[in-house]
Amino acid sequence: MKRGYVDSDMGQMHYWKTGSGPNLVLLHQSTQTAEEYKDMAAFLEDKYTVWAIEWLGHGMTDDPTREPEMADYTRTVIQAMDALGIDKAAMLGHHGGGSICIDIAAQQPDRVTHIVASGTGHRSPEELEGLLKHRTDTAQPEITADGAFLNKMWNIYATLGGPNTPMSLMHRVFLVNMKERMRPYDAHDPILKWNKAEACAKLTCPVLLMQGELDTFVTGQEHLLDVIEDSRRVVMKDIGAFLFYEAPEEIAKVVDEFLSEG
């Protein structure tokens, strides 16, 4: 696995690359990093050139100097793909990363051969308004001298995996998230406010909608089957919000089968 940086108009973008074959670009979820896909890549690298790009304000990619909009996230990933010479690719994204994949494919339909949109859902305007208000009202635990906030966050994270997810694995997820929570800007809100339905209606490539059965962050994904012309859906049983950590081999198999379809 080779790691590196390329430049965008909002700073350095960090990525890793492994394997050989057709390009498969992976975009992590908000408050995670490319670490999310390391385990799955081991099951795909014999057949694909697997790229994981850390988007603005995540991982080792630079923090933006102002609050980004969805267009900033998308544009800078495109700039990274340009710099890396990725002219054509299948794209897979989880949660917010899935939305960026959809936005890129809507803008550059000739560039994206397939999309795996994992954990990408649909909310009515009322549901969205409620979620944004809930996010505004829910404060992050204060960082205090006694370190109690660490236990509070850990207790939350320990419950987010599926029933078969080992503690050591959720600890990995937690460590990544803990670092990402300290970034100056949270990507959730600009992505939630973005007009996903409009972009979905423009998609021409095959789309696989995927969801961990126990992923409580996702709602209304089945609605997207009606919006996206060439789409199908798979629900991964007994798996939670961190499915690429939780079941990398199982998901790699599903992804490969989808990408191998005629």
Partner: peptide
């Protein structure tokens, strides 16, 4: 460890 005491 499960109770998170290693973090503290």
């Amino acid at each position: 460890v499960e109770d998170g005491s290693h973090l503290i």
